[in-house]
Design a protein around this nucleic acid. Structure first.
Lengths: 164, 164
DNA sequence: CTCAAACCATAGCATCGCTAGTTGTTATAG
DNA sequence: CTATAACAACTAGCGATGCTATGGTTTGAG
């Protein structure tokens, strides 16, 4: 529903009609809509992890580029899920001790993708910058802020810069 | 109002009370709330441009680093404005011919900041990647997805990577 | 068979963005 | 000076939202 009509179209009334229950039943499972977004975000993070893991190790492409491309593809194919992960879910922190496993797993995949080109640099920091650049590309492109047709050029430049 | 209580607290009724007019008057000036976000976003883009321009050319710091730091500072000091620019305003495209001047001006500032280290690479593409990385850092940090205390490390690594 | 505990629906609250209809005021034409 | 047109702003309301209080129905244990 969110993928086809956007998250604003996902109301508790429409949801309840879809599951053929009354509206208040939703609040027996989620304290609020934000909690529902959070649940969707968590599931989506493991989906993203899987996609990134499969991207590594394929022949003819270095891991950094493959993981980056897989990240962008995931965001492109599941815009609503990506929005739930990064825009609508307000509280899913990373640094804390209570970081959900799905989030650390996704981070670990990114880290595994770029670790080989770290060259003595701090891998965690490098991964964060890598992640930020990818997320920025997704976010800006989604808003129409980047030139069309230059996607490969941007990705190539990014990978090349971080690989040195 | 948005800065202190968040954009959700900015309702047409509260706005009308603030300006001491009735609610429908707002719709004589803006066709919708989205149009109002857009107006805020446009103004904020020129504010950002000014901040970036002032950052360049200061002694003892290379332009890339200075502009990047100014960008992050702006986002940190005006979280609601930044949100209006990149999250709430849905239609403010860049690539089109009707790109508002405020947006191209901001892009030009980023470009001027990083042009000196382009080294033969396409400057527009480099600027887009630069911008994406900065926006990603802002966005992820805002969501609590990055480690606290490592801000300088990330910025340093980013600038160093793109400067090669 | 009884009774309590889940479970779920009806109805409603407060609030939202937005609009139709109306009234009060100002500017203009005769 | 008056009548009329134009404008500007307000009152009231519509549909829809997230969320909740209340009450009925089913289930299962003793």
């Amino acid at each position: 529903m969110a993928e086809s009509e956007g998250w604003d179209a996902v109301t508790t009334r429409r949801l309840s009609a879809e599951i053929e229950y009354s509206q208040p039943v939703i609040y027996k499972h989620f304290a609020s809509l934000d909690d529902l977004y959070e649940a969707v975000a968590l599931q989506s993070f493991t989906e993203l992890s899987d996609a990134l893991r499969e991207a590594r190790g394929v022949a003819g492409l270095d891991d950094v580029r493959a993981v980056a491309q897989a990240y962008l593809d995931f965001a492109d194919e599941h815009p609503a899920l990506y929005e739930a992960m990064f825009t609508r879910s307000t509280r899913l922190p990373f640094g804390d001790s209570e970081t959900p496993a799905a989030l650390t797993a996704a981070f670990a995949e990114l880290r595994a993708g770029i670790a080989s080109v770290a060259q003595g640099r701090d891998v965690d920091t490098l991964t964060e910058v890598f992640w930020a650049a990818l997320h920025g590309l997704v976010s800006l492109q989604r808003g129409g802020r980047l030139r069309h047709g230059a996607e490969d050029g941007r990705l190539g430049l990014l990978v090349e810069s971080l690989s040195l």
